[in-house]
């Protein structure tokens, strides 16, 4: 049961939201590990994308910044981790730190530009930034491997001892552990005064100014944080997949991340997580069942969700849960 912070923060539950988030991610990871031992590479990829969707949620769901170029942060960090490994930085945790740092710096740099605008100009700007990064990655073949991708690097064992196995067990468990920690931290941050003010800014910028909030610095700071989270996801992908391709910075990657977020429910980290999972599992199932029309089925599912749960599956689940509780004696 999650903690419900009562008046003046008095806890009335057993678990804090952060601990609950940490445990749920571990529980899901354990279920995946036990039930799908042959699909761990696929599950690890989902975890990597989950970072991107969480990162997107921070700026879109919590700050109201419309973006269709967020994969740029993910991809830049992936290339940075790949190049660092190529340069001899083989420790996976160091590579993750490099990914987070590069993602954060990229987030701050692009956020400083994007946060100056609102609405459609902002959306167009994010697309332009994403396309620019994608074009550069394609052009700078010596750094990115161009269309062939970057793969001539080796990642060392975890903690200098635990080598990555061919079944993807170590990679998956490491990914789940990092996701659990980052998810718990993000749950903390969005409930902090900083996180609440970003939500207030999304709600109404004028009202936020009236209580003394500086809009622009907070949006840029959130963009930096979002970049760090996307960067961890990108680096994780580079470490566990052993290759970084142009798809990591593509418009399609940005758009699909947004779809996952809308599916799960923007402005709710649980929704970002749920959207990533549901989207990938559904995509996997229908593409296996019907290799010719699976895209149509994914599209149909999205239409149904938008029609019947426009605020996403997580919000729909919350409403349903509230109704069930109200009916129970």
């Amino acid at each position: 049961m999650a903690t419900r912070a009562g008046p003046s923060g008095i806890a009335s539950g057993l678990l804090s939201p952060e601990l609950l988030g940490f445990l749920v991610v571990w529980a899901l990871g354990t279920v995946g590990y036990v039930l799908f031992p042959d699909d761990l590479a696929f599950l690890t990829r989902i975890v990597s994308i989950a970072f991107l969707v969480l990162s997107l949620d921070l700026v879109t769901g919590y700050c109201g910044v419309a973006t269709l170029g967020h994969a740029a942060l993910f991809g830049i960090a992936a290339y940075a981790a790949g190049n660092a490994a190529r340069a001899g930085w083989a420790d996976p945790l160091v590579l993750l730190a490099i990914g987070a740092l590069v993602g954060a710096v990229s987030g701050l740099a692009t956020g400083a530009l994007i946060a100056r605008f609102r609405g459609l100009p902002q959306l167009v700007l994010t697309i332009a930034v994403g396309q620019l990064v994608a074009a550069l990655c394609n052009k700078l073949g010596w750094l990115t491997g161009g269309s062939d991708g970057l793969s001539d690097y080796t990642v060392g064992p975890l903690f200098g001892r635990i080598a990555f196995d061919m079944y993807g067990r170590v990679a998956f468990l490491m990914s789940v552990a990092i996701l659990a920690v980052v998810f718990a931290l993000l749950l903390r941050i969005v409930r902090s005064p900083f996180g609440l003010l970003t939500r207030a800014i999304k709600d109404d910028t004028v009202k936020a100014r009236m209580i003394g909030a500086s809009i622009y610095p907070r949006l840029v700071a959130m963009y930096g944080l979002s970049g760090a989270v996307a960067g961890i996801g990108g680096a994780l992908g580079a470490i566990t997949a052993g290759v970084v391709g142009l798809d990591g910075v593509s418009f399609e990657r940005s758009a699909s991340a947004l779809v996952m977020l809308v599916l799960g429910g923007a402005g709710n980290l649980w929704g970002a997580l749920a959207g990533t999972l549901v989207f990938h599992v559904f995509e996997h199932l229908v593409s296996t069942a019907n290799p010719f029309h699976w895209m149509s089925l994914v599209g149909a599912m999205l239409i149904l969700v938008v029609v019947f749960a426009p605020r996403g599956l997580s919000f729909g689940a919350i409403v349903l849960w509230s109704k069930l509780r109200a009916r129970s004696p």
Binding site: A5, S8, L196, R199, K207, I211, G212
Partner: peptide, 25 residues
């Protein structure tokens, strides 16, 4: 000037400007 998407407690904390949460009391 309430923030409609925040709950009551969160609205109050947002107005605290970094001061301790207990002040919502």
């Amino acid at each position: 000037d309430v923030f409609r998407s925040l709950n009551v407690e969160e609205n109050l904390v947002a107005g605290l400007k970094g001061k301790p949460r207990d002040l919502t009391r």
